[in-house]
Each structure stands twice: as structure tokens, then as C-alpha cells.
């Protein structure tokens, strides 16, 4: 009985060596926490939808948004209370509601960005920011 068990196991173990080496290396490579800390998402990847414009106005607004994100917002520490951020929200509003209504909606959002009434919003568990997506 014991001999049979050993035999079965020996047969099943044969040929595992090479695969084991590969899995060991893969496991060790995945343990690299430096890499996770160092990998930063590109702006164009993060806001991929910015490139989807249907008219010139949207194109200009998207360009302004990317300029703001790249050169101004990048120098700021986290100051917006919401997710998506006010600039993202305003851009989405302009794209979906047109320049006039969209801008008004964007200014409305800016006036609410103060964390004075957090109870009105849900909290995003990932970013710990107040959830306020654009509602149509």
C-alpha cells in the first residue's frame, strides 16, 4: 500500500523540475514592490477618452484640459475633494451637454468642491474621495 502511494507520487512528480524553475522566477519577479511603487500611469493613457472629440470646440477644450493637467495640476498636491476631479467633470460636462450648459455645470461643481458637506456624497473606497460623477 505504502509502496503504491510512493510509486504514484514519483510518477506524477517526474518532469516538474523545469516548470518549477520558471514558476520560481515568476513568483520572485512578482514580489517586487519597488516596481509597483515606481510604475506611474501616463497622462494620455489615464485620460484616453479626451482624444475622442466630435467637433472643434471639444478639441480645444480637451487641449486646454490636457495643458492644465500637464503643467498646472501636476504641480499641485491633492486638493480636489471629488472623483472625478473638477477639471475632468467640467470636460465631460462640456462634451456631453455643450459649451454653455457644460460650463455652468462645471462652475457648479467648483462651487461644491469644499468638503463642507461630505454627508451628501458616497466615498470612493479606492481613492477615499467623494464620489460625484456627471449625471445627465
Amino acid at each position: 500500500m505504502r509502496r503504491n502511494i510512493i510509486l504514484i507520487l514519483l510518477i506524477s512528480i517526474a518532469g516538474v523540475g523545469k516548470a518549477q524553475e520558471i514558476s520560481e522566477i515568476a513568483l520572485l519577479q512578482n514580489l517586487d514592490e519597488h516596481h509597483h511603487a515606481a510604475s506611474k500611469e501616463k497622462l494620455s493613457d489615464k485620460y484616453h477618452y479626451v482624444k475622442q472629440n466630435t467637433n472643434e470646440l471639444q478639441f480645444v477644450m480637451s487641449g486646454l484640459f490636457l495643458f492644465y493637467k500637464e503643467f498646472i495640476s501636476s504641480q499641485d498636491s491633492q486638493s480636489c475633494s471629488f472623483t472625478p476631479s473638477c477639471s475632468e467633470y467640467a470636460l465631460q460636462a462640456v462634451k456631453q451637454q455643450g459649451i454653455f450648459k457644460g460650463m455652468l455645470n462645471g462652475f457648479d461643481r467648483l462651487s461644491r468642491c469644499n468638503s463642507l458637506s461630505p454627508e451628501k456624497y458616497e466615498v470612493d473606497p479606492e481613492t477615499r474621495l467623494l464620489l460625484d460623477p456627471l449625471k445627465l
Partner: peptide
């Protein structure tokens, strides 16, 4: 910090490839 981590990450990946079987 990011730059430091990036270098350390690259070195780590190279060290892992120094597996005895390799």
C-alpha cells in the same frame, strides 16, 4: 523616490534572473 525605486526594481529583476538553474 520614484527614480530610486525604478533603479532598485531594475536591479531586482536582474538579480532574480541569476537563478541557480539559469
Amino acid at each position: 523616490l520614484e527614480k530610486q525605486e525604478l533603479i532598485r526594481s531594475k536591479v531586482y529583476q536582474e538579480l532574480v534572473l541569476m537563478h541557480p538553474e539559469k
